[in-house]
C-alpha cells in the first residue's frame, strides 16, 4: 500500500488496513488520499453521518458506545471518528475516546478512529470529511463523528453531518450561554445527559426556552438521557429519526448536503490559496520587503495587496 493505486485496490477489496492508511494520508494532507477518494467519490454518500458534540466530559463517548451497540443489534456496520484537541504548544495529544468503546474493539463490523485536531492548514473538516468518505467506502451504514463543540473548526465538522446531536449536562447555565454562539445553531437534536444528577430537568427546560427563540422550520427536540445506564436512548434515537424524516421532505436533505458541499469547496479553495501564499510568501512575494516599504510609508497596504494578488494568481494560473 505505497501507491494510490495499490491502496485503492486493497480498499475495494474491503481491507481494514487500507481504510486506516487512507485516513492517515488524509490527515497528512497527502495527495495520494485525494487521488484514491476522487476516483471513488461517485460511490460515496451512502452512509448516514451522525455528529455527536457537546462540552468536554458531557458523555459523548459513552453515548456513542451505546449507539454502536444499538446499531450493531440492527446488523449495521458502524464507523466512528473521535476527534480530540491537539495541544497547540507541543503538537501532541492524548486521544482517549476509545476507552469508553473497548467493548467493540474486536468487532469486525465496527471501525473506530481517533483524530487530533492538529494544526490542519485546510481546517479540521478537510481531514474529517476525507475520513468519512473512507469509512463510507468501507461500507459503514452509520458513521458517528464525535467532537468537542467549541471552536469554529469543529462547527465546520458538524456541518458535514446529516444530523448533529448536542450532548449537554445539568447545570450548564453559563456554559450554555458561552456555547451558544455558532454551536447551538448547528444542533439538530439535543440531549441532556447525566439526568441522574440534580438539575437535569431544569437544564432541559432552559434549553427548550432558548431553542424556542429560534424561528427555524425545525425546533430541535430536547431529550433527557442517562448514557451510562442506556436510559432514554429510545427517545433520543426516535428524535434523530424524526429529524431525518423531516429532512427527507421536499429537497431539504439535498439542500443540506448542497450547503455542506459548497462550504467544503470554498474551504478547499481557501486553504489551497493560503498554502500557495505561504509557500511563496518569502521568495516570490517578497512579503518582508513590502512590509518594510509600508513601514517607511513608501507603500500602502492596499496597493501591496494588489501586487501580491497579481503575482499569486498569475503564478497559480
Amino acid at each position: 500500500m505505497k501507491t494510490a493505486q495499490s491502496l485503492g485496490l486493497a480498499l475495494d477489496q474491503g481491507q481494514r488496513r487500507a481504510v486506516a492508511r487512507l485516513i492517515t494520508w488524509a490527515e497528512r494532507n497527502d495527495p495520494r488520499a485525494y487521488q484514491v477518494l476522487s476516483e471513488r467519490y461517485a460511490n460515496t454518500g451512502r452512509a448516514f453521518v451522525l455528529g455527536v458534540s457537546g462540552p468536554p466530559g458531557s458523555g459523548k463517548s459513552t453515548l456513542t458506545d451505546a449507539f454502536i451497540r444499538r446499531l450493531r443489534a440492527q446488523g449495521q456496520r458502524v464507523g466512528v471518528i473521535a476527534v480530540d484537541p491537539t495541544s497547540p504548544f507541543t503538537g501532541g495529544a492524548v486521544l482517549g475516546d476509545r476507552v469508553r468503546m473497548n467493548e467493540h474493539a474486536t468487532d469486525r463490523e465496527v471501525f473506530i478512529r481517533s483524530m487530533g485536531t492538529r494544526g490542519h492548514l485546510g481546517g479540521l473538516s478537510k481531514a474529517t470529511s476525507a475520513a468519512i468518505l473512507a469509512l463510507d467506502l468501507y461500507g459503514c451504514d452509520t458513521i458517528i463523528v464525535e467532537t468537542v463543540g467549541v471552536g469554529q473548526s469543529e462547527v465546520d465538522v458538524m456541518r458535514v453531518c446529516d444530523c448533529t446531536l448536542m450532548v449537554m449536562v445539568p447545570g450548564l447555565g453559563d456554559e450554555i450561554q458561552a456555547i451558544k454562539a455558532g454551536v447551538m445553531e448547528v444542533g439538530d437534536v439535543f440531549v441532556v445527559n447525566k439526568s441522574d444528577l440534580a438539575g437535569a430537568r431544569r437544564t432541559a427546560r432552559e434549553l427548550r426556552a432558548m431553542l424556542d427563540l429560534n424561528h427555524g422550520e425545525w425546533r430541535p427536540p430536547v431529550e433527557q438521557i442517562i448514557a451510562t445506564q442506556a436510559e432514554g436512548l429510545d427517545a433520543a434515537w426516535t428524535a434523530i429519526e424524526t429529524f431525518i424524516s423531516f429532512n427527507a421532505e421536499g429537497n431539504r436533505a439535498y439542500q443540506r448536503r448542497f450547503e455542506s458541499v459548497k462550504h467544503e469547496l470554498l474551504g478547499l479553495m481557501q486553504s489551497a490559496i493560503l498554502e500557495k501564499a505561504s509557500q511563496s510568501q518569502a521568495h516570490v512575494l517578497k512579503i518582508d520587503e513590502l512590509c518594510a516599504q509600508i513601514t517607511r510609508r513608501e507603500l500602502d497596504p492596499y496597493s501591496a495587496l494588489n501586487q501580491v494578488l497579481a503575482i499569486l494568481f498569475s503564478a497559480t494560473r
Partner: peptide, 14 residues
Amino acid sequence: RALRDAGMEVIYTG
C-alpha cells in the same frame, strides 16, 4: 503524557 508532551499523538485505550 510524556509522549504527548514530546509532540506525539497518543491513543490511550485504558
